[in-house]
Design a protein around this nucleic acid. Structure first.
Length: 471
RNA sequence: GGUGCCAUACCCAAGUGGUAAGGGAAAGGUCUGCAAAACCUUUAUACAUCGGUUCGAAUCCGAUUGGCACCUCCA
């Protein structure tokens, strides 16, 4: 069963075939480390993790490279722009290196919390300045560049197919439509973009390097081209990122990469849709800055957010709300409760042999291999949890198999231990049991509400009473 | 102005031309001293509207209405 993926380049579903049999070169656009990631940023990384896990379970070997943008990502265009990290450093009176390190660390804490499998290579832009300079030199030799106003520009008119990924109609595009972006008069074509800056209105920066064009710093797009080719070769399989990267960032990456090598660069382009909030696109400046840390402070688990994201397809916009997150939390908890009751029955992993179990496995794979159909996969999970034709071991085994794709940590679900509860709560529970025996319902009910006030729910079963921490 | 996407039950949300997944919520029932939990059952003659193609459309085409994103900060 092949894996079908939606390729932005062809705007259609394609059977996935890597360039080199079962080895996949995967490059994902990493974070710009000037601030915390918000949960919308994280959704894109979760999509990429889902992609990687789906490829892994389908028998591919994945070589995953992700960049860290720690220089060159400007707040605006041309020499108007200010480096995002430099700006943050100035505001907080820290060095740019400290800022980059701080937010890189914060990013990977979220990454780990969300059970995302770390990339094989994480590369920082500032460690690959030489590769970028070399790439710009190649472009220069082939006549794709010009120097104007002190900066090196890529000339989009030097290639025949600029904008093919986004299907841009160059004649009808407006430039600088947004109020906060002004056009750059140094450009021959307003769509040209900077490869190397030596001039910035904001003057000397902390991050500057010598180059054949003078002391300066790289443009934003060049880092992904230089590093991806450095680690994955001049042609590789999959490049992914957020949907916003299509018209500019990825368009420019393709232009400069293919102009430099003369070869097709990336075989499959994949893009994750946005997570929206009530106001529309999620932002770091307006409204509540929704970080994973904030969700955790509000009492959610990182896995609640992961479950929430899996419930929607990666190519659909998802409108975030705490109500929706509550739903995901409840659903995930219900899954865990069911796993616990399987464990109570002594569930263990076994080889799957029954026709029914194998059918579930095949159906699940078909769903996730169909352009990462995680919502269908979750429905399959519920099917397994509820299907009494499966025995306890089969169900447990299937759940563990599915979780290789979900990454929801179901393998670490264990039976709750009584010791998890404070002794005073257990003492109250014991007293209530006694009161019940004596048919002292008043006392029993009072003890139950006391426990409730402490945050514990009493569950009476035929075999006795137990506690459960309320959410 | 250009480009792309979306409108499915109370809410979230899948749907790959063949007769509407799943979750949450709610209601009824079983159980219970009463609750809670658990378990069972129920909840879309139909997928924004109007046309068209087809034996057959939520799925394809066109128009209309409403919403969103992008067009050099952006995941």
């Amino acid at each position: 069963m092949p894996v079908f993926l939606y390729n932005t380049m062809s705007r259609s579903l394609e059977a996935f075939e890597p360039l080199h049999d079962k080895e996949v070169g995967l490059y994902s656009c990493g974070p710009t480390v000037y601030n915390y990631a918000h949960i919308g940023n994280l959704r894109t990384f979760l999509f990429e993790d889902l992609l990687k896990r789906t490829l892994l379970i389908s028998g591919f070997k994945v070589n995953h490279v992700m960049n860290i943008t720690d220089v060159g990502h400007l707040t605006g265009d041309g020499d108007e722009g200010e480096d995002k990290i430099e700006k943050m450093a100035n505001q907080s009176h820290k060095s740019v290196w400290d800022i980059a390190q701080f937010y890189t660390d914060a990013f990977f804490r979220d990454y780990d919390d969300l059970h995302m499998i770390r990339p094989n290579v994480v590369c920082k832009a500032t460690d690959h300045i030489q590769q970028m300079i070399d790439l710009i030199k190649r472009l220069e030799e082939k006549g794709h560049t010009y120097v104007s106003g002190g900066n090196v520009y890529f000339s989009i008119d030097s290639i025949p197919d600029y904008g093919k990924l986004a299907r841009l109609d160059l004649d009808s595009l407006k430039t600088a439509v947004r109020d906060d972006v002004s056009s750059d008069d140094n450009k021959k074509n307003p769509k040209d973009f900077v490869l190397w800056f030596t001039k910035s209105k904001h003057g000397e920066q902390a991050m500057m390097w010598d180059s054949p064009w003078g002391k300066g710093f790289p443009g934003w797009h060049i880092e992904c081209s230089a590093m991806s080719m450095h680690y994955l070769g001049e042609s590789f399989d999959i490049h992914c990122g957020g949907i916003d990267a299509i018209p500019v960032h990825h368009t420019n990456e393709i232009a400069q990469s293919e102009a430099a090598t003369g070869k097709p660069w990336v075989k499959y382009w994949m893009h994750g849709e946005f997570l929206l909030d009530e106001t529309g696109k999620m932002s770091k400046s307006k409204g509540e800055f929704l970080t994973l840390d904030l969700l955790k402070r509000k009492g959610y688990d990182a896995m609640d957010y992961r479950y929430y994201c899996l419930g929607g397809h990666y190519r659909s916009q998802l409108k975030f709300s705490f109500e929706a997150l509550d739903t995901a939390r409840k659903a995930r908890k219900n899954v865990q409760d069911r796993i616990q009751s399987l464990l109570r029955e002594g569930a263990k992993k076994v080889p799957l042999t029954s026709e029914k179990a194998l059918q579930y496995q095949a159906t699940f794979l078909e769903h996730v291999q169909h352009d990462l159909g995680s919502p269908r996969g979750l429905a399959d999970l519920w099917g397994v949890l509820k299907d009494e034709a499966l025995d306890c071991d089969e169900r447990y085994t299937l759940i563990m198999f599915f979780d290789q794709v979900f990454g929801l940590g179901f393998a670490s679900v264990e039976l709750p231990e009584r010791e998890d509860f404070p002794s005073e709560a257990l003492a109250l529970l014991e007293k209530r049991l006694q009161a019940k025996k004596e048919k002292n319902w008043q006392l029993a009910d009072r003890l139950r509400s006391e426990l409730d006030a402490m945050g514990y729910r009493v569950k009476d079963t035929p075999t006795g009473s137990s506690l459960e921490k309320k959410m």
